[in-house]
């Protein structure tokens, strides 16, 4: 079985959605607090930004995009991307990502793009478009757009293929019948277990 994503999956690299703009230095404790680790993914997802923006997890809609500032995702290996995918978040944009947090997004098949100045370019409710394969982004509301360095092919392949677990299933390391389940939002992103 091929471990290459299909053309349809490659469409996952192009996302358009309404944005929510957050600030700098958001940690994994802001998104996946310790008490949430005791909960299943759907319940834990309700805790995302529980202290930074209470009530947000009830407002975010499937297809929305989260925009953040510098050093986004500093902290633990907890698969925060699992919670974002559970909430239907379609992509992450940040001025700067913590590299572990970025890897977790990639491995969960959640598109993530580094856009300098993102918190000034975007405002709550704007419509953003990102194309990871082209390295391009746009604020369709304000008509501002730009380009960024394209991620390495192997990283794009993991994202386009629905994350690393779905790839493992295609490669025969996990039961093939789980491939679809593993690339579904809640299951895939939950990953194999948790981390701290």
């Amino acid at each position: 079985m091929s471990d290459s994503p299909t053309a349809a999956q490659a469409g996952a690299l192009h996302v358009t959605g309404r944005v929510w703009v957050f600030g700098h230095g958001l940690t994994t404790d802001d998104m996946y607090p310790p008490d949430a680790m005791k909960l299943d993914i759907p319940e834990a997802a309700k805790q995302v930004f529980y202290n930074v923006r209470p009530g947000w997890s009830a407002q975010v809609q499937p297809g929305d995009i989260v925009v953040a500032g510098r050093n986004f995702g500093l902290g633990s290996s907890r698969p925060v991307a699992a919670l974002f995918r559970q909430l239907g978040v379609a992509a992450l944009i940040a001025e700067e990502f913590n590299s572990l947090f970025f890897r977790n997004a990639v491995n969960a098949g959640l598109p993530a793009m580094t856009v300098p100045g993102a918190t000034e370019v975007f405002h709550d409710g704007d419509i953003a478009a990102v194309d990871l394969a082209a390295g391009s982004w746009a604020n369709q509301t304000t008509q501002i757009s730009g380009t960024v360095p394209v991620l390495p092919d192997l990283v794009l392949e993991i994202i386009a293929g629905g994350g690393v677990l779905a790839r493992l299933a295609r490669q025969g390391y996990l039961p093939a019948e789980l491939a679809d389940v593993l690339s579904s939002p809640s299951a895939a992103a939950a990953g194999q277990g948790s981390g701290a």
Partner: peptide, 13 residues
């Protein structure tokens, strides 16, 4: 640190 999904992948590959 690499995260749970990636470590699972490394376990396999």
């Amino acid at each position: 640190g690499l995260g749970p999904a990636e470590v699972y992948s490394i376990l396999c590959t």
